[in-house]
Design a protein around this nucleic acid. Structure first.
Lengths: 99, 99
DNA sequence: AAGATATTTCTAGTAATATCGAAATATATA
DNA sequence: TATATATTTCGATATTACTAGAAATATCTT
């Protein structure tokens, strides 16, 4: 993952409401969670929720799938793991080797 | 880790310059890296760099240790791992169990 | 003490983000 | 077609963050 993308994703997760949303999705599993369920579970006004979900989608951490009137939000586990790997990349390779 | 703290830490990492700084520190190991080395390695103006380091310190992702005129920045690996664990906590526990 | 080195604080202009009610859109059902 | 449900878009305001030059502080050396 490029640093720019990693920073964007971390920034989106770095907001209490969005982090709550994302964790709720991660907990929910691969089938995804309807927007309406997130709304009642987390008690966020619709317009605010929609804004935050749009941002998570915009950086690829969430995708959406429509079934009739219901929009499911699906967390992108691969991107999450890529982000985690990025944070630990080259960990300590310069330990005791001051450049 | 509380959600509020996790969000704060993610937000600080969600900035290109700060993420570069933090990764440089993570790579550098437990002894830490002098501010001046970060400055020349990443080519950031001193006042800007100081501002970003202060923010990383303020959320506990970095600590500092002074040796004479030199300030070493030490990444807090435990906090990083705590953050990573937080992101994966309860992963998929509701898979196929719509509430 | 004077000068050099390392880093921070101050300051201010600019830009980005958060919030949520109201209105709009999309889809289903009667 | 009319109504209900699900979700988004619009719009306006308020708050917070980014940047970097200049000045200040801290420590070391001579």
């Amino acid at each position: 993952m490029k640093l720019e993308m990693a920073a964007k994703r971390l920034a989106e997760l770095g907001h209490e409401t969005r982090l709550k949303i994302f964790r709720y999705l991660v907990k929910g599993g691969h089938q995804g969670v309807p927007v309406g369920e997130i709304q009642s579970a987390l008690d966020v006004p619709g317009s605010t929720l929609s804004h935050h979900i749009t941002r998570l989608v915009s950086v690829g951490l969430v995708e959406q799938r429509r079934e009739g009137r219901t929009l499911y939000c699906v967390p992108q586990y691969d991107e999450l793991h890529g982000l985690i790997d990025f944070l630990q990349e080259e960990c300590c390779v310069n330990e005791n080797n001051p450049s």
